[in-house]
């Protein structure tokens, strides 16, 4: 189950962060998302370690922590998407698929002429779309 998704801007500032848990551990998830930026930075700054993942937007599993797994995605405009999930067995293809749809939603949201680049995404449509994508996560593999 996806517990948290986030969009992080150039200065590593949160543009959109939403948790999807019943339990009130949003703050902890914020911390986890924030920490994962270190991994993204390291991946981006030391591309040789990640080798074949050069030029790929999908960063893969960033790090496992406690009961969560954190995945990352880096757009061409260097906006980071972070996904926190509690599932132990996640297929890379599912995550890729999720990020692809999430990216599309993000592009639509920032294409809004009233959106100022670099500011928080406050669009309600975007939030709804994201929650739809989050809910459908994992079903594609099951079905």
């Amino acid at each position: 189950m996806i517990v948290c998704v986030a969009v992080v801007g150039h200065q590593n500032n949160p543009l959109y962060i939403q948790s999807f848990t019943e339990a009130d551990d949003a703050l902890k998830l914020h911390h986890i998302v924030h920490c994962s930026l270190d991994v993204v930075d390291e991946r981006v700054n030391n591309p040789k370690k990640s080798g074949p993942m050069l030029n790929e937007t999908f960063l893969g599993l960033l790090y496992p922590i406690e009961n969560y797994k954190v995945y990352g995605y880096l757009t061409n405009t260097k906006v980071k998407f972070i996904l926190v999930t509690t599932d132990l067995d996640v297929k890379d293809a599912d995550v890729r698929n999720f990020f692809r749809r999430f990216h599309a939603a993000y592009v639509d949201a920032v294409s809004n002429p009233f959106h100022v680049p670099g500011k928080k995404i406050t669009s309600r449509t975007f939030a709804e779309r994201v929650s739809t994508i989050v809910k459908s996560f994992g079903f594609s593999s099951a079905g």
Binding site: E42, K49, G51, P52, G60, L61, P64
Partner: peptide, 11 residues
Amino acid sequence: ATSSKPLTEWE
């Protein structure tokens, strides 16, 4: 990256 569950550098 080839293995099904790659290790992250964090580990």
